[in-house]
Computed example of a mutant assay.
Amino acid sequence: MSLTPRVHDDGRSRLMAYDHGAHLATWELDGEPVLWLSEAAVLDGSHAIRGGVPICFPWFADGPDGEHSPSHGVVRTAVWRPATAQGEEIWAWELSHTDVVSAPGADQIPGPFHLRYAVRLSPSGAGRPVLHLELQAHNPGPSTYEVEVALHTYVAVGDVEQVQIEGLDTADYLDKVTGSRRRQEGPVRLTGETDRVYERSGPVRVQDHAGGRAVELSPRGAAQTVVWNPWAEQAATTSDLTDESWRRFVCVETAATKEQALTVTPGQTRTLGCSLSTHPVGR
């Protein structure tokens, strides 16, 4: 059975989301995708949705010890409860630890939690809409714990081999493909399978020369930026990617992982968010 999408039209923008994973699947601006969604995405609730902005919580990938499962945590395949939208919010959702007690991996949750996630649009000074994403993680329990969190944003591009990512120059990063630690020199250009965790969180601009625009991501509440693309060989072995789809996106993720994970004390709420805006390419 197919999932039922939520659709919102707002002037130049069209957004689509699902309660499955509180997943913002698409954002189109003037009919062109800003967020990429795979043509082969599974939309029946049996898997995480490939594309858009998956939410990773309470661990990222296979966790800080490399032994957590399922990949990227238990909430991206959970059915979230719609919450009352506030202010400019288009949609909001909530999820608690009690909602995922029977999910695979629930025994690895570090403590009780309550999440609230919201999507909103606002106009920019240049007349272009800005998309805002915000995840709040509350600890209602008696003990402090740490959680890994990421907004796994798939940015749509014309050709990833012509993309240039600015804002990470001189940042140290872990290259998860080679297992080495390096320092970025100049803008990021992708020439093969890429999986890097940069120790920097600040405005990052994806210069999409083939697509004729730039997409800027401005994070909040995180210490890291992840850049990921599987490239041709990995895409060919991934069932919800088509052979050439790897060319059409680059993931630029607002993240807090490993040593930079979020510490949440009893009664505390930690917030991680990201805003996305479009600009003329090269500016």
Rank of each mutant, 00 (worst) to 15 (best):
S2F: 10
P5F: 13
P5K: 13
P5Q: 12
R6D: 15
R6V: 09
H8K: 10
H8W: 13
G11R: 01
R12I: 09
R12C: 08
M16K: 14
H20G: 07
H20K: 11
A22V: 08
A22R: 02
L24H: 00
L24R: 04
L24F: 11
A25Q: 02
A25V: 04
W27M: 01
W27S: 05
E28V: 07
E32S: 15
P33L: 01
W36E: 03
W36P: 02
S38P: 03
E39R: 15
V42D: 03
V42Q: 07
L43K: 02
G45P: 02
S46G: 07
R50A: 02
G52H: 00
V53Y: 00
C56S: 09
F60L: 03
D62I: 06
P64M: 07
H68E: 14
H72G: 05
H72R: 09
G73A: 07
V74W: 06
V74M: 03
V75Q: 03
W80I: 04
P82G: 13
T84H: 14
A85F: 08
Q86C: 10
Q86I: 12
E89Y: 12
A92N: 04
L95T: 00
S96R: 13
H97N: 15
D99G: 08
V101K: 15
P104C: 11
D107C: 09
Q108V: 09
G111K: 07
H114M: 14
H114F: 14
Y117S: 02
S122C: 11
S124E: 12
G127H: 14
V130P: 04
L131V: 05
H132Y: 08
E134C: 11
E134I: 05
L135V: 00
A137P: 06
H138D: 05
N139A: 07
P140E: 03
P140M: 04
P140I: 09
P140C: 10
P142H: 10
T144S: 14
E146I: 08
E146Q: 14
V147D: 08
E148V: 06
H152Y: 02
A156D: 11
A156M: 03
V157N: 02
G158N: 11
Q162A: 13
G167V: 05
L168I: 11
D169I: 08
T170E: 11
D172W: 11
Y173Q: 00
L174S: 13
L174K: 10
R181I: 06
Q184S: 10
G186Y: 03
R189T: 13
T191Q: 12
D195R: 01
D195S: 05
R196H: 11
E199Y: 14
P203I: 12
P203S: 12
V204F: 01
R205T: 15
A210R: 09
G211C: 03
G212Y: 14
V215N: 06
L217I: 13
R220Q: 14
A222K: 02
A223F: 11
Q224Y: 05
T225S: 07
V226R: 01
V227T: 08
W228G: 00
A232F: 05
A235N: 01
A236V: 03
T237F: 07
T238R: 02
T238F: 10
T242Q: 10
T242R: 15
W246M: 03
R247A: 00
R248G: 05
F249K: 04
F249L: 07
V250K: 10
E253S: 03
T263W: 02
T263R: 08
V264S: 04
P266E: 05
Q268I: 01
Q268N: 09
R270H: 04
L272N: 00
C274K: 02
S277C: 05
T278A: 01
P280R: 05
P280E: 11
